[in-house]
Design a protein around this nucleic acid. Structure first.
Lengths: 341, 341
DNA sequence: TCAAAAACTTTTCGCGCGTAAAAATAAATT
DNA sequence: AATTTATTTTTACGCGCGAAAAGTTTTTGA
């Protein structure tokens, strides 16, 4: 690149031999100018590496190219993974994603929505905290800003949602477990932070009843997002108190299951579907680390790809204005058979 | 809050009975105005919930309140956890952190630094990718923007760094392992993405030699950030080919160790320090999930708290101008004894 | 009580860009 | 070649705020 530092769009327009409004138009949408003009701008861009001031741009634009991605807890690899996916799709579409984590705190979730407003985002991809979310705040936010919810469906009508068909998850794995061994009991958190948990429990109960089995639910104490620890403690207690009256345990999610596996290890119980094993354990989600649990965890995989793809596509359609807002799309889970069950 | 919508600082200054520059000064630093004035502004703030336009603010401020946090791979819970920690400390200090992940891609790392520049951040907390980073780009960036590096020290003089004393990590765990059983071999990636790995290997070799033992390094093939899979494959191969000639394996990091544990499970080897165990396995980092491995992983804990605290403190001192730039601070590791070794 | 210091107000300017309307130019069509 | 249509230029204004300078009020301290 040449030397003479370009200070603003005026100077850049000068060196490319065009007027500032034309250059401005180019940056707004490169396809909106004549190809020959575009070529001249891009040639000048090569030589001078000018970039429009992002603050001045966003100050006057009615619609920015900002996209907010909000997850409830980023230290959960599930959300880290799906956030990564969403982020890259937004970048590919020419948007500027910004990632936020509520860190499990509803007050922080509200703060994020607040500061997101002032960023005038074109749209927001939001996975709410769930049970503890401030539903009215979310509803109000969605009314103001084009938003697609994912992962966790909150109980507010008229919102656009992309996620998994949780009852189907439970049905799928219950059928598999019953087909290959004893019917499972269900292990979950007493106060799950996520409404998906309730749907999974109901799915489990219905699936069991359809098969003529008696459902049995075990509930672990504990608040917060340290699911492994809750699973370990609750699992240890359930095992010690004899609450587990079958040799098969279906956990509400993989992180809980990983904690339960630790409890089994500590209790000296061998987990798996072999002859010498005392217990079968299954999870739900196909968490990134489930494959490396010992034994590797049998689970129902969420379709990360499909969810993130559709969430982003839907958001851009809502932004463009050609989408029927308020639709829900649910993806089915896929059975992932490993050693644990 | 009352109705009359406040459109800008002018109007807000009017309703609070002050002049705009005074209000502007308040938002820049609430303590810079007289307490009585501050009270009036905050009273008006209660009633009208006005917030300054963030774009207009940052456009003219020489120094914004933005802080960039850049990590190499956010789907690694280690980075997710430390990012969370850093983020909350920045917020507490009145800054606006923005989180970025390079997703293991050096090109993306450069893009992030580029777009970070245009955000005029007050400072940046940067954990570089390491080996594959564009060192010249990082050096140039650090010269332009107050930056504190953490986790991974790149080989550029004069940069401020906060991290762990990696040789000490290796020494600590080698001494422990030798004291309680056979001397360990060292299991690492052939082409580690992170320079810490090299320091840990050297630390291992020196610690072994000091104890009069012969070091033995096993190296797993594989690129990228899927450390568990690399550890599993490499571990399976090392076990199958008889490369592991001692009953104790020290892994370069916990994620690799978790993969190695999976390889052991698949090979039917019982891991732990009991009589009936075939192998002891140890890691380094105290990864959030190591406690829930089966068996729970013995490891050396990084001092997340201390690192993130000092990194943020140092950054703010650099920003304030009263810090000797170019200093490195290394924290010692703490031995965490669990069942695996 | 009075002068000095501190805090505040007013005035004025500018940042870098979006946007709109009218005028000028170029390209496409007949 | 004349007309229509698409682009670009010109001109002008505004966004919401930061910053500096000069004047005014309030507080401080001896």
């Amino acid at each position: 690149m040449s030397e003479g530092k370009i200070r603003n769009m005026e100077e850049f327009a000068a060196v490319s031999g065009l007027s500032r409004p034309t250059v401005s138009k180019y940056f707004h949408d490169p396809a909106s100018v004549r190809p020959s003009t575009r070529a001249r701008i891009e040639a000048a861009l090569e030589k001078h590496d000018y970039r429009p001031n992002i603050f001045a741009m966003n100050q006057n634009r009615k619609l920015t190219k900002n996209v907010g991605i909000v997850v409830p807890y980023l230290a959960d690899p599930f959300f880290a993974e799906i956030a990564r996916n969403l982020e890259q799709r937004c970048i590919a579409a020419g948007y500027r994603p910004t990632l936020y984590s509520a860190h499990g705190d509803p007050a922080l979730e509200n703060d994020i929505l607040d500061s997101l407003r002032s960023l005038k985002p074109a749209g927001v991809l939001l996975a709410p905290l769930g049970r503890v979310s401030d539903l009215r705040a979310i509803e109000k936010f969605c009314a103001d800003v084009p938003t697609v919810l994912f992962d966790s469906m909150v109980d507010v009508a008229g919102l656009t949602f992309v996620g998994s068909d949780n009852p189907q998850f439970a049905t799928l794995i219950v059928n598999y477990l019953c087909r290959t061994g004893e019917p499972p009991c269900f292990f979950e958190m007493k106060t799950p932070s996520n409404p998906n948990a309730n749907k999974r429990r109901l799915g489990y109960i219905q699936a069991m009843e359809r098969l003529g089995q008696t459902p049995h639910v075990i509930r672990a104490e504990g608040e917060g997002w340290n699911f492994e620890e809750i699973g370990r403690r609750g699992g240890a207690r359930a095992l010690a108190e004899g609450q587990v009256r079958t040799d098969t345990v279906l956990c509400s999610n993989d992180r809980l299951a990983i904690g339960f596996l630790t409890a089994c290890y500590e209790a000296g119980l061998r987990v798996g579907h072999g002859d010498r094993c005392a217990l079968r354990v299954a999870g739900q989600d196909d968490h990134p680390f489930s494959r490396y649990a010992c034994p590797p965890l049998t689970t129902v995989a969420q379709d990360y790809e499909a969810i993130s793809r559709l969430a982003v596509e839907t958001l851009f359609r809502v932004i463009a204005g050609d989408a029927p807002a308020g639709q829900s799309t649910l993806f089915e889970g896929r059975l992932v058979m490993r050693d644990s069950a």
